[in-house]
Design a protein around this nucleic acid. Structure first.
Lengths: 248, 248
DNA sequence: CGGCCGGTTGACAGAACTCAAGTGATGTGG
DNA sequence: CCACATCACTTGAGTTCTGTCAACCGGCCG
């Protein structure tokens, strides 16, 4: 159990402040949340669909993903989780998890008891509203993913996901000079986009050829942000950021 | 403005009670919500993406859909709204709408001021939790749609959406003897599933040939519920119903 | 009656999948 | 230290699902 005023709370507060305006008081209260920190290796399940957890997990560092499996064993990644995200915050009000969550890269994860979260929401309604808002933005992202997977093809579909990732990473200061670390494999992109891994590979090659992205290892560089946004038809409205400059 | 204790509140309460346990007191309080009722023709926008509404809309009867448009004018329906649904409840905490909502059939719609909803949530935290839960279930449905559009093909994808619709209709007593009224055109299914209208037509024909569905006009009959569920890989967990018999 | 809309059908095209093989980097064990 | 396995990525060839285009039917409504 880490003590209050620990830097572990920074990702949470930075993320919340990208979509909600907190008072000094509220910031301070958030740091009183009890949290058990764990260090996880890559490709490990954090929670599994069907679980009935009594706590939610806050990603402190690293990349994770929320996914579901079809009856025939195909995996759909429904969202990527980065620092500051609480990908199973919904379990606060939905007893049974309908998704699994797994790390992609090595992660530091903080577990926060539901009881503490519920208590905080009741005693500080604005904080309750902030968490509700978080889950509503998650829903908006899922809606956008439905559209992305349903209507866009090839390069456009991939470009859209990359745009979203970059903006969300920027909101928590993980992008510098149009460069970020993105330890997501082509297989994982395939599961997120509804493509085959082979197709992802070809799409990425085409994007590199067209100067939309540059990669070396896990580092991604966006040479021309406006062009990528246009190809991906990316309009960040659905992310409901309070600092709109993040998406510019 | 309709008066309290009016039958207009029945769809809302019936829907809430399918996913949340209400006390008599809470039921009564819900009926004090001010609501302006409107009658709309089919294929009319109720609200549009980009709007900043000061009220949410409750579907009292009829079918509506939540949709988004791509930059190239393609439409993705991200969910169908039926009696009891509040498809833009999220606008309570997200100022700008990122989706549009339109009627499919003629609808009766109740508009509830955000102020009244916010007030109720503050004064009755369990009701606040119930509404939060509603939005979380919406998010769970979006996640399932991402998987459906991303991983399932043809008959399976269509079967899944039909299963979901039937269960949700059953939850508000709109299914009798495996028969329901479904005034959704093939074009609308196409926009919901990410198919072309022609493909929807062929998929439906195949499903009729395989005895999965029977249709006459807008009436849909499910001759073999278990078979349809199996083909659509439908597991109703994600709907988080409190009365689980509804999905049986 | 004519127009319109939703549904249906056929022929063809194209996006994406599968299978299969091969590369290169990393890591492990003898 | 090298052989070997593993994993992510790459490439090619053939297949399949789904889209596009186009035409046509039948019911409904003005």
């Amino acid at each position: 159990m880490s003590s209050p005023f620990h830097p572990d709370y920074n990702p949470l507060i930075r993320k919340l402040e990208s979509v909600f305006i907190l008072t000094d008081d509220e910031r301070q209260v958030l740091e009183t949340l009890p949290m058990q920190v764990a260090v996880l290796k890559d490709r490990q399940d954090i929670v599994r669909g069907g679980d009935r957890p009594s706590r939610s997990c806050l990603i402190l560092s690293g990349f994770a993903c929320v996914y579901k499996m079809t009856a025939h064993g195909k995996r759909q990644i429904v969202s990527f989780a980065i620092a500051g995200d609480i990908p199973d915050l919904q379990s606060l009000h939905l007893k049974t998890l309908d998704t699994s969550i797994a790390t992609i890269s090595p992660c530091r994860v903080g577990f926060i008891p539901h009881e503490a979260l519920r208590d905080l929401c009741l005693r500080y309604p604005p904080i309750g509203a902030a968490f509700w808002r978080e889950t509503l933005i998650d829903a908006a992202i899922f809606r956008e993913w439905v559209m992305n997977v349903g209507q866009r093809e090839g390069v456009s579909r991939m470009a859209h996901v990359l745009c979203e990732l970059v903006v969300r990473l920027k909101a928590v200061d993980l992008v510098e000079d149009h460069v970020c670390d993105l330890p997501i494999t082509q297989i994982e992109f395939a599961d997120a986009l509804g493509f085959s891994p082979v197709h992802v590979n070809r799409v990425l090659q085409q994007m590199r050829a067209e100067g939309l992205i540059e990669t070396q290892g896990t580092r991604l560089r966006i040479p021309d942000w406006d062009k990528l946004k246009e190809v991906g038809e990316f309009d960040p409205t659905y992310l409901h950021l309070v600092r709109e400059d993040v998406a510019a």
